[in-house]
């Protein structure tokens, strides 16, 4: 390999940046990588232009020391811009295939120009085309990796948001909290539920908490253990824990599983748990007489 790798590519990029840019965008459009519904013509052009600029700088510096490695510092600029653009595209809902197609579309205008320039030197042409192809592929792959990482972050964020949504600790009355559990209760979630419940006990100075499991799909030994441990931790903090919403079916299952609820108070309905909790903080729910009702 010549010590000046991609020399002709660099020349081409210098001489005809505008032309390459225009052809690239056109090619991307043909390949279905353009999303006019998500990006304006100008945005599309600006993004491609900055990509092309850093690509040229990368090729220039990488050519100097004869090395070619995507992880090299020469490509740091391009990697940064690729990440930025990919991030923006994920946010707006571009598909990973479309992002890859956009980058791969750069091959066409570059190869066309190289072919013209190196007409007389086919060996050199093949060399540069191979290397350039490898480089662009590498960037497409890199962009895909960024894409996946971005997606994972989105999923993670949504998971956290759902987590918060699904463990709302509600203050029913002074010193009385309730935690309606919904869905499944795995170890990780049980930990998080316990943490936010205990934190709420401190913050609201609660004396009684009702953990309502009406919305919990299945109660197996593991879930039962989590519930009992939550109740134990609540007691250690100095508050009382009532588990409500234990259906006859769940009660039977718990007995069959041999789960010993020990000292933990259980109630079949949230209603009876609430009565119990209010009594212990010295409050009662009473019917009011008709005069008052009519006055409202």
């Amino acid at each position: 390999m010549s010590d000046k790798i991609l020399e002709t590519t660099l020349e081409v990029l210098k001489e005809d940046a505008e032309g390459i840019l225009a052809d690239w965008i056109e090619q991307a459009d043909e390949d279905g990588a353009k999303r006019i519904d998500l990006f304006s013509e100008k945005e599309e052009r600006d993004q491609a232009a900055s990509l092309l600029r850093s690509f040229r700088l990368g090729v220039r510096d990488a050519s100097k020391d004869g090395e070619f490695d995507l992880q090299d510092e020469h490509w740091a600029d391009l990697r940064g811009i690729l990440s930025e653009i990919t991030h923006e595209r994920v946010e707006r809902g571009v598909l990973p295939g479309e992002m890859a197609a956009l980058i791969l579309a750069l091959k066409t205008p570059l190869f066309e120009r190289l072919t013209e320039k190196l007409e007389s030197d086919p060996e050199r042409l093949i060399e540069e085309v191979l290397l350039l192809s490898k480089a662009i592929d590498a960037f497409a792959i890199y962009s895909n990796e960024v894409f996946i990482a971005e997606r994972e972050q989105v999923i993670e964020r949504q998971r956290d948001e759902m987590m918060e949504l699904s463990t709302p600790v509600v203050e029913l009355w002074d010193k009385v909290l309730t935690l309606p559990l919904i869905g499944t209760l795995d170890s990780l979630r049980a930990q998080e539920v316990m943490e936010s419940l205990l934190q709420a006990i401190v913050e609201r100075q609660a004396e009684v908490v009702i953990v309502d499991i009406t919305g919990v799909k299945t109660v197996d030994t593991q879930v039962a253990q989590h519930l009992l441990r939550t109740a134990a931790a609540v007691r250690l903090m100095g508050a009382r824990c009532i588990i409500s919403g234990i259906s006859p079916k769940i009660a039977q299952a718990m007995v069959e599983l041999g789960v010993d609820v020990g000292e933990v108070r259980t109630r079949s309905s949230l209603r009876s748990a609430l009565m119990d909790a209010l009594t212990s903080v010295g409050v009662a729910i009473r019917p009011i007489n008709d005069d008052k009702r009519n006055a409202k």
Partner: peptide, 24 residues
Amino acid sequence: MRPAVAMTLVELGMYLPENHTALT
């Protein structure tokens, strides 16, 4: 008792059944 301490004790299997507990 701090929340993190309560959770850790439960994980250690120490429920301190002999003790009464209170918030403050």
